[in-house]
Write a protein that binds this DNA or RNA. Structure first.
Lengths: 358, 358
DNA sequence: TTGAAAGCGCTAACAT
DNA sequence: ATGTTAGCGCTTTCAA
């Protein structure tokens, strides 16, 4: 008996033999054995098998281009080896780089990745988790930064392992949740201190809407650095932003820059919440005739070294974090010992943060 | 009877009732009906059902947080509504933007997307196709540009619909393959003509290794524009590139630029195979002290408008192409009438292509 | 209006 | 060394 091609809807019977899919029974019949023998061969139990039988089955598989149905295997309880990765915005080069890095790390361990784009929409985030769950995916790397993960309870209860990225651990987190993140607060602290060292005193913080954990931490790092240096916080230097997506970093940054330049005492330097925002702010500053104002980004996307002036930024150790996450998904007990969950950022000094001149 | 949480390996029995998953049988038992009645309700056959029964079943589902197992449904022949998307490099902002655009279009029709990163590796491309196939995904948008798609025969034979993107139709293509692409040749023709109009005569073409259909077409458009204007082709102006990934656009572009500047008669303008390459070449030119050389890109990634000088480029109509593809996957017969398979690019003039001065 | 039964493709006791 | 059997969760005739 021969299984219909794919699913009933798509049966193609326009060729004599190519368009059907062999099942384990077909192989068994062709090799003159029972399905369980074929199954034994499939499941590394070939030691208890006559070499001749083995060969015949192998030939039958080859002849019929047999490939076991993973759907059937999953129904029996086999795990799906794929790793799910959910990012807030694939259009943002940072998330693209991150996905590529995780792909590399996981490919090295023989696991593929399904990447999902949530557009920062908790509802989409949830449906993607459920979709992956429905496909039997056991490990999901969720690049969210939402404070609460309640919407993922059902999947977690069902045993799906969620590893949150870019989100430091929260008090309300369930114990089975793993969080891997760069030290966001430390990163902007480094950034701000760098600007202070370059002589700046009026330093602004530009960002899209600050509703995520990571952005809140980045703001906190900026504030701490100022406080430590005896500079009073000034709300005017942290212009509020409406709540749009990354695609609009350009627009958002322009608005923030306009607000800052309208101040009586505008800043001489900007800490941007991330590189895309820094690039947008840079464009806005040039347009406004203030290319002298220093900018530092966060993330270290590859493009930052290609633009002019090259972007000073704070590097996230993507490779190390990717490896930790894949290890966590593959050998949890072992990995939890060997890796930190919060990774240190590093300062990357380029041309966009000149010493204060005025 | 209650199904083990997720899969055997991950059973968590540390709570009184939360960590198990209800099956259709559990619901049936709780509602005091048979599994088929529950199934009827699930499959929009509720018309033939006593309102009371309906209510009881619904309550039982609610109480047990029942969610049908899609794996079991798939084994029965139900299609997986997800759309697969394979791109050569998620780290390249163009592919990120493309993925986001396709996500938007397909989300509008209620279909989610699994994005896969092939790193331009035909083997990975094949394993991702098989993976998606194994998960019951019926439509795969393959952003490859490889001349031959033989490695995908098994999946296609099984009824998986492959829609190739960024790859114009080839003679050897199987009839069931759909190709959606921008007019690559027309795009670089536009680009080159633009440079000619700005007075340039020594125009180079910079690119990574040209082994894909689309890059070959882009080179052809450049050559045609020159030929039409009576400018002889000069191999020196098309420096060869080694075969690396997109991540290295910077390095690759630098090498190409160095070769061009070493020429006795260096070009005054560059046509880049895509925006990332253009950005890399721009950085290299500035470093070499030749910011005067004009550059035009291809793709129109969002960042192109944020850099300085803003990048002149050729826009791919991503939104329109995404809609066509989703329509093709959703209502093939209808869509094949309404959409072209090759879409026209448009010129986006910004600051990076000044009139020739010397 | 509801239920019983067969079967999707595969695996793993258990029997031979 | 190989075959028989039951069953994973669900759907769908068909019978009651």
């Amino acid at each position: 008996m021969v299984r219909a091609a794919g699913y009933a809807q798509r049966v193609r019977i326009d060729q004599e033999q190519g368009c059907t899919i062999a099942t384990i029974k077909d192989v068994a019949k062709a090799a003159g054995v029972s399905p369980s023998t074929v199954s034994n061969l499939l499941n590394a139990r070939e030691h208890l098998m006559h070499p001749d039988t083995r060969r015949r089955v192998l030939e039958a598989m080859e002849a019929l281009s047999y490939k076991p149905s993973r759907i059937a295997q999953q129904l029996r309880g086999a795990p799906n080896p794929t790793l799910g990765l959910i990012v807030p915005s694939v259009a943002n080069p940072f998330w693209g780089s991150w996905a590529a890095e995780l792909e590399t790390a996981s490919h090295a361990r023989g696991r593929q990745i399904y990447l999902c784009n949530s557009q920062r929409d908790p509802e989409r985030e949830r449906t993607y988790v459920e979709q992956l769950w429905a496909d039997g995916v056991e490990h999901i790397v969720l690049s969210t930064s939402l404070p609460s993960l309640d919407h993922l309870r059902p999947a977690m209860d069902a045993g799906v392992q969620i590893i949150a990225f870019d989100r430091e651990q929260q008090e309300t987190d369930p114990p089975e949740l793993l969080n891997v993140s760069v030290d966001n607060e430390g990163g902007t602290w480094l950034a701000t201190r760098h600007l202070l060292e370059r002589g700046h005193r009026r330093i602004a913080f530009v960002s899209g809407a600050i509703r995520t954990v990571s952005r809140r931490r980045r703001l906190a790092g900026y504030q701490r650095a100022l406080a430590e240096n005896g500079i009073p916080l000034d709300d005017d230097l942290v212009p509020a932003s409406p709540d749009l997506g990354d695609a609009d970093s350009g627009t958002l940054a322009r608005r923030a820059v306009d607000a800052l330049l309208a101040l009586d005492d505008p800043p001489t330097a900007l800490v941007a919440v991330n590189d895309m925002f820094a690039l947008g702010a840079g464009a806005a500053l040039r347009e406004a005739g203030r290319p002298d104002i220093a900018i530092i980004g966060f993330d270290d996307i590859p493009i930052g070294s290609l633009v002019s002036p090259a972007l000073t930024t704070v590097r996230q150790p993507l490779r190390e974090m990717a490896e930790a996450i894949v290890a966590l998904a593959t050998e949890p007990s072992d990995a939890e010992q060997r890796y930190p969950l919060v990774f240190p950022p590093t300062l990357v000094v380029r041309a966009s943060t000149p010493r204060r001149t005025t």
